[in-house]
Design a protein around this nucleic acid. Structure first.
Lengths: 207, 207
DNA sequence: TTTTTTCTGTTGCAATTGCAACTTTTTTTA
DNA sequence: TAAAAAAAGTTGCAATTGCAACAGAAAAAA
């Protein structure tokens, strides 16, 4: 992705406003607390945005892959619970401070100008992902959520046969439904001839 | 909002890349079809993002207020149904083309530089709203959705008494639940002493 | 390779939710 | 200001869903 390589250049040419750090699996990348203007870019690896609720249950709020952008800057100021980003694999992360993106850095580094538009690109990308999730979450039944999800996968891949790119357990989390209820609904969809299913490979049989 | 006034300046100083248009209630502001790079900013008024589903039912996907940013650029490339933005009141809208934000306009207008960061600000703002909605949508029961929604309102207002800023009908849409089921749950919450309710004024009684 | 952990798959049951069909109240429009 | 439209409020009932508690398969770790 072009935006990412521009940023890497800026970094390597010595822009002091960008930090690059490495994390091992299970290490804490950042917490969303008093870092209002922190923007992070995951250059490689996988990470989860985690909340521990009042009962101490771990709740996966979001998850990030290569080229994803995240940070407290994307979240409301007033959150009840602390959010943490935890590495799910070895990660390389760029850290930027929001204000630094707008104002030029002291050394007036020549890559600074591209920063703002690169961040905008990634942020737009993030918005597309969010809207996609809102799309499926706003369906009222598990069946509709699944069909909506499959339909999006199908149009991305230009194919009526889609492979769910995450575990079914994680899919249930993504759709915010009970996993066993989702499994049941997958079976119903298959029994009623809407789909055929082999593991996480789904063939859409309707229309 | 600073970003908006910067944009207005850019416009009024004659940047040819920005268009300003006025719409009356019920007029179509734009459609999300083959306008991949269109970015719109609602300077005043209210608007809804609408989808007509297969049965011809009107489905309100999102709604926009002053200073909100929207456009096909925020949506996945492959959408099944056509999305339209309809004015809900008299609206003033700025239209920008995404590529123009990145490259400088021919006249090299001096306000062009601020464009990118202004758009970034608005886009980050948009992400915050989206994350807030995902937060409530990902709650599994109507009760949890309501409590989560109230809790967010409460921390915004620094008060245990909140006024729902939209109609209850629209709130049910926002939470993606059946309106009558939501009304029932509001009554249950009141009966069980979690809240007290007077119209759209809600007092939080827990903790 | 064995052990441990995670993931998949299943089912009964109770609780929640959506749907449909109303009435009443409030707001908007003519 | 009267009429029309939208919103609020209610309830019964059937369908969906979450929860709990399993067993077996697959993947990861030791």
């Amino acid at each position: 992705m072009d935006e990412i390589s521009s940023l890497i250049n800026a970094l390597e040419q010595g822009c002091s406003k960008i930090q690059k750090k490495y994390f091992k699996k299970n290490e804490i990348i950042t917490t969303y607390i008093q870092k209002r203007s922190q923007i992070c870019i995951l250059m490689s690896g996988k990470a989860d945005l985690i909340r521990y609720d009042l009962n101490g249950n771990k709740d996966i709020v979001d998850n990030f892959n290569s080229n994803d952008i995240f940070g407290e800057a994307f979240y409301p100021v007033h959150t009840n619970n602390e959010l943490s980003v935890i590495a799910n694999a070895n990660c390389c992360v760029l850290f930027l401070v929001h204000d630094d993106i707008l104002r030029k850095c002291k050394s007036n580094c020549k890559f600074h100008n591209i920063l703002s538009s690169s961040i905008l690109e990634l942020t737009l990308n993030n918005a597309i992902h969010q809207n996609t999730r809102i799309e499926v979450l706003s369906k009222r039944s598990i069946r509709e959520k699944l069909l909506s999800y499959f339909s999006i996968l199908s149009s991305k891949d230009f194919s009526k046969t889609v492979t769910i790119p995450i575990s079914l357990t994680n899919l249930a989390d993504y759709l915010s439904v009970d996993r066993s209820a989702m499994m049941r609904e997958l079976k119903n969809l298959a029994n009623e001839g809407f789909i055929s299913k082999n593991g996480s490979k789904i063939k859409l049989l309707y229309k």
